[in-house]
Design a protein around this nucleic acid. Structure first.
Length: 139
RNA sequence: GGAGCGGUCCGGGUGAACGCCGGCCAUCGCAGGCAUGGAUGGCGGGAGGAAAGUCCGGGCUCCACAGGGCAGGGUGCUGGCUAACGGCCAGUCGAGGCGACUCGCAGGAAAGUGCCACAGAAAACAGACCGCCUGUCCUCGCAAGGGGGCGGGUAAGGGUGAAACGGUGCGGUAAGAGCGCACCGCGUCCGGGGUGACUCGGACGGCUCGGUAAACCCCACCUGGAGCAAGAGCCAAUAGGAACGCGUCCUCGAAAGAGGACAGGGAUGGCCCGUCCUACGCGUUCGGGUUGCUCGCUGAUGAGGCCCCUGGGCAACCAGGGCCCUAGAUGAAUGUUCAUCACCCAUCCCGAAAGGGGUGGGGACAAAACCCGGCUUACAGGGCCGCUCCGGUU
RNA sequence: UGGGGCGUCGUCUAAUGGCAGGACGUCAGACUUUGACUCUGAUUAUCAAGGUUCGAAUCCUUGCGCCCCAG
């Protein structure tokens, strides 16, 4: 697991959402879930941990208790859309796992959007804009 | 017009912006030790009728070859279709409905075993509680007759039960009984029809044969196991990995070796047989566990779709021709916003009505994960076709 | 996604096809000045819908829910 060996990352600005901005390995999820801070917000639960990258990455966890495949897919897509649009408001250099609670089963786009903004505010408060990378990476 | 039955089709359309996934082409000494991946641009593609449940069947892959018997499992009216099936088509029988039509795990209970609680006299080689009839004895009574004891006949009647040993009627009898007769049921035989399930007709028997096999079982047929996280390949360094040879005994032989016998372990889902391989250790040789990546992986060399022609078949389906089509992810791609049209609901306005317009709201079930054939279950709203019954009008 | 297992009072568990039992709970009463302990009584269940059977928790079919294993 070479942290500095990332391939060329596309433009970090704009509203694109390539795979480089996402958590893709079970390892990475477990690492954040073990050592990250918990930020609850309505139907969402965010787990945050610093990474040593120039950008933040997000991973989504929607268990089968939330609903059937259609409901889960809709929530995933809505959250990805929100991350794509609001990514610029997030502090850089973070790995975030968003866990969807079962209360989101009936939630509309507006409700999920409100919960997502709650996560954004908490992130901004915990990691103010001139973020200094930590001296040693998390274990 | 009303009520209903069956079949079949659809599952909102168009456009715009920003994104996502993969394909082809081009560019980039962009990343990595390699396998391989990434970025940017262009062009075209991107969920369902059930994609679901995972209830069956098959392809495909590996298990060394996929064999025989037993056990186990599955199916169960008949004939056909199919790669196969527990599926489909046609028919038979049974049940339901006035009918269109629907439903049925629908073989065997006279091969054997088990079970049939409670109630009831009796629950399976029947039996006798009450009752009915009757013989004899005692007794009461003038008598008719009554009561009791000991016997015999009976299975019509009673009550119990899910079920009581053929049913109904007539005759018959002391009372009764298939004891006799008629019809029905049952069984056997004969004849006709049908490939067959079965059916039609006749004769005879004379009632002997309860239910339960989604109880064991019998009969007929089918059946090896696991599953794409199967499996195959690639890569730097360190092996504990892999392959090959060597087991014991006997005979022949000087030896090399040849032949025969036997034991142990393992694979073949279980057991037996058969077949195949040889554990440990030693020697020789080859090379790579894990991580990661690629292929498998999306099909034009398809069990593909349409049902448009031709032929066969009642049909399912088959043969030939024609046309059409096919997402490929792997923390897992389809979302957000807007415009507009069509549909449904509520409400308001115009209008005699038909209808027109405004505002607000609504649109189900459910998302590929190797592929295919079925089954089952879920589903807002709608289109089309055929048929049945009832009522009205001409 | 694939494979496997299980559903009985509020909880943990029993029940050869024949009245669903027990323990811990809960409630009420008794005992006690009160409480605890103890005693007595009550309460409450076969995941759902069909089918087989005289009769189903049990057998069959379909559905629903939960759990486990495999990266």
């Amino acid at each position: 697991m070479a942290e500095g060996a990332a391939p060329r990352v596309p433009q970090a600005t704009g509203e694109r959402f390539p795979k480089a901005f996402r958590l893709l390995q079970r390892r990475e999820f477990l690492e954040v879930q073990e050592g990250g801070q918990k930020l609850p917000s309505d139907c969402l639960l965010a787990l945050v941990q610093r990474n040593n990258r120039a950008h933040s990455r997000v991973g989504l966890t929607v268990s089968s208790k939330v609903g059937n495949a259609v409901v889960r897919a809709r929530l995933r897509r809505v959250l990805r859309e929100l991350f794509r649009k609001r990514r610029a408001q997030w502090p850089p250099g973070l790995d975030v796992v968003l866990v969807v609670r079962s209360s989101a089963k009936e939630a509309s786009f507006a409700q999920v959007s409100r919960a997502f903004d709650g996560v954004t505010r908490k992130l901004q408060r915990l990691f103010p804009a001139p973020t200094v990378p930590p001296k040693e990476p998390a274990p």
